[in-house]
Each structure stands twice: as structure tokens, then as C-alpha cells.
Simulated assay, not measured.
Amino acid sequence: MIVAFTDLDDTLFQTLRKLPPGMPGLIPATLGRDGQPHSFCTPAQSALLAHFADSGVTVIPVTGRDPAAMARVALPFTSWRVLDHGLTILRPDGQMDTDWRGQVLTQLEPLQGALRDCTQAIAGLAEALGCRLSHHTAHETHFMTVLKHPDADAGSLERVQLALEHHLDSRGYADLQIIANANNVSVLPRYPGKAEAVRHLRQQHFSHATLTLALGDSLSDLAFMNACDLAVTPPGGQVLRTVTAAKLPQR
């Protein structure tokens, strides 16, 4: 049995803004809140998904999307699903894995004060820079604060990220982490996360798998990618950009 644990956005599909103008053969992969196509699979991404389906590979999304955003994904996932950056696991029947939920809540509760403090500390700068601040919850519990600039202004997002990093360091919040991309900056628990959710599924439900693949594009995916046997990453993604820019000795 082969299992592919895969990130979604910018790995299996992306918005038109990130694709060459007029690219042929695109297939809608998600819908926006208005019900219109929002993200698309390229022919290569569609071919990969078709190959997985034809080969009997079990495909499990591992995504930061919450259940509502996952419901707008049009791709036919039929197995387990890892949502909310690993804090929510849905069974193949769409019901929540309550055992995992209990473990997550036990670990989230002690972090509420630190999350609240980080949110309050960054709110003033975020407002001054025109960033939108939002609270994300899992199991009715705050687990992530996201700061997004309406124009994806790199300078503003960098200032927010640096301020958050300084605050975490100064307060000694080792159990929190910052993840960032071209669109937003977020602060959330370091554990549990995608990697712990993938390990949980491997141990509890896929211990018999002969091969586990991990697909992801961003640095925040690396932990769960390292929890699998082999990793696949798209060109131009954050992972390959970082590796390409690294000046490391070859030995």
C-alpha cells in the first residue's frame, strides 16, 4: 500500500495569479466563497492526481485549510484529511477523529495566554501597516493569529514578522512558531502540528503501508515531509527557493 500525504495550496493547485497568463488545460480545483472557480490544477498536477488514482495510491490532504475552506476543494479526496495545520483530523466518513481532538485540546489550553499576548502585542503595528488581523480557531479554541496585507506588501509583512519574532524571543515562547509566505504571517503552536498528525495516522491507521510519500511546497511543510519515506516538492516553491539560495558547502 502506498500513501501520499500532500499539502494542497501551491502544491496540487494554485490561483491564476501564480500561473502563466493563458496557460492551457487548467482544471478548477477550488471554489471561492462566491461559488466561482478560485484555484486551478495545471495539466501536470492533474496528471499526478490521475496517476495516484489509477495506481490505487491513498491520497491524504495535509493542509492549513479549516473544514469550511476544505469543503470548497473540488478534488475527490475520499480518505482521511488533516486540516487546521494538523489540529483537526477527519475520518473518511467526514466525521472528526475525537481521540486526536482530545490530544490537541490538552496541548492547546496551556498556550492560550501566550497566543493572546502575541496577538495584543502585534495589533497596533498591524493596524498601522494596514494589515488585517484575524483569529483562527480549531475545536472552538484559538490556535492561530494571522496577519494579512490586502496588497501582499512584502515590506509590511516583513516588519510584522520581525516584530513577532522579537516578541517571541523576548518572552521565551518556545512553544509557539511563526510561519510566513508571500501573503501572510501567522503565529501558532509549534506542537501539535502537521507532522504529529501525520505520525498519528501512520501509527494508528497506515502502519502496514509499504511507502509513504510527502508533497509540499513551503517551509512549514518540512516537518511532516520528514515524517514520511520520500518527499516531493514543486519548482518555484518556498522549499526549493530556500535551498537554491542557500550557500552551503558540498560535502
Rank of each mutant, 00 (worst) to 15 (best):
A138R: 01
F143T: 00
P192G: 14
P235F: 13
V104E: 09
L240V: 12
Q103E: 10
F206S: 09
L188W: 10
A121G: 07
A227C: 09
H208I: 05
G124K: 14
L162S: 11
Q203D: 14
S134F: 03
I122Q: 05
D175N: 09
S134C: 03
L230Q: 08
Q120W: 08
G102W: 10
R171M: 06
R171E: 05
H208N: 13
E127Y: 03
N183G: 11
L162Y: 11
C118Y: 00
A182L: 09
G193N: 13
I179R: 00
S218Q: 12
V187C: 07
S156G: 05
S170K: 11
T233V: 13
N183I: 14
Q107G: 00
V146K: 00
D99M: 08
L188F: 12
L108I: 10
Q177T: 12
A197G: 13
V187F: 03
N183R: 06
E165T: 02
R190P: 04
C228Y: 02
V104P: 07
R199I: 04
A197Y: 13
H149K: 00
Y173M: 13
T210M: 13
I179A: 04
R190T: 07
D229P: 05
D169Y: 15
D169S: 15
A223C: 06
R241T: 13
T244M: 14
D217Q: 08
A246R: 06
I178P: 06
T141N: 01
P192A: 15
A114R: 11
F143W: 12
S218C: 07
R190S: 09
A197Q: 12
H166Y: 07
C131A: 15
H142K: 10
P235E: 15
R241L: 11
N181T: 05
A163D: 10
Q120R: 07
L211H: 11
L129N: 00
D169F: 15
D151N: 13
L125G: 03
E165N: 10
Q112K: 02
G193P: 05
